[in-house]
């Protein structure tokens, strides 16, 4: 371990109200830590710049999963293990259950929370493409009250979110309006488990006689933020999946993404594979794969 523990301070407010109050009184000073799966790695490597940490692990207000007639509402403090195990999520939002199972290791899934994952805002995170395809909303809370924004507005830039310095992610809402839609989800990682995505995609579509009536798509690891592929959704809507459509969609994707070269992969690979995955997605959803 390369960090010096005495240079850090961590406090546990004990309840949500106290946590929000602390964040409001000293904006930006306290980094909320839930499962700590990201923070602990940074800390151990001696690279955690924030020295003041606020423990929000286990706050009951953040740890509920509620099923209402029009939405499944997942508390920000729910772990990926809980999301994976939840019956309604597995039944209606199976792509989220599946991507939850892709997160790190079992140990990671027992600690890592959905809100932590979104607030950490890695473009390579596993669950965002599914949340984009499901048209999720996020509920934010502060001493000033709560507000709800579409998840598409959450990520502003690489590792930068729409959260203000006094806000926590209270919950993620998944609207229950996609009965009968088919889905497609795929992670291209460096290996089959405990892998960081090189390309990650989730999509759902309403398909009738080979025609895409409506489609929603999200893609990760190909740009500074997880992308909702809205232009491709528009292009595909009302059309049959054939070589022409696929070529158009691939061209659109090419313009939307901005993959990088890093120690995990190359621009060329991410670009070509993103296109291949998109093609595989369209063919699979249309039943022509």
């Amino acid at each position: 371990m390369r960090a010096a523990p005495e240079q850090y301070e961590m406090i546990s407010p004990g309840n949500l109200a106290a946590a929000l109050k602390l964040m409001a009184s000293e904006p930006g000073r306290w980094l909320p830590v839930a499962g700590g799966t990201e923070v602990m790695v940074q800390y151990s490597a001696g690279r955690l710049p924030q020295r003041n940490l606020m423990n929000v692990w286990g706050l009951p207000e953040l740890r509920r999963i509620e099923v209402t007639p029009d939405a499944v509402v997942i508390g920000g403090g729910c772990t990926f293990a809980e999301i994976r195990a939840h019956k309604a999520i597995a039944a209606e939002f199976s792509m989220l259950a599946k991507t939850a199972a892709w997160v790190g290791s079992i140990a990671n899934q027992n600690r890592a929370t959905l809100a932590g994952n979104l607030a950490n805002a890695s473009p390579a995170a596993d669950s965002p493409p599914a949340l984009l395809a499901y048209e999720a909303e996020i509920e934010l809370i502060s001493v000033r009250g709560t507000r709800r924004i579409p998840y598409t507005q959450c990520h502003l830039d690489y590792k930068r979110t729409a959260l203000t310095q006094d806000e926590l992610i209270l919950a993620v809402r998944l609207p229950r309006r996609f009965a009968g839609w088919r889905d497609y989800v795929r992670k291209v990682g460096t290996r089959n488990a405990q892998a960081i995505s090189k390309v990650c995609m989730a999509a759902q579509a309403l398909v009738q006689d080979g025609v895409v009536e409506a489609i929603r798509m999200g893609m990760g690891s190909v740009a500074p933020v997880p992308l909702r592929l809205a232009a491709i959704e528009e292009c595909a809507a009302g059309r049959k999946v054939n070589a022409t459509l696929i070529a158009e969609c691939r061209q659109l994707l090419d313009k939307m993404i901005a993959p990088i070269d890093d120690i995990r992969s190359t621009i060329e690979y991410r670009r070509l594979v993103a296109g291949n995955v998109l093609e595989d997605c369209l063919r699979t959803l249309a039943g022509t794969a």
Partner: peptide
């Protein structure tokens, strides 16, 4: 070695 961490130096897991 630029990828001197287990996240980025990829060994096969039991799943591979």
């Amino acid at each position: 070695m630029a990828n001197n961490q287990m996240t980025n130096y990829i060994i096969a897991t039991s799943q591979d």
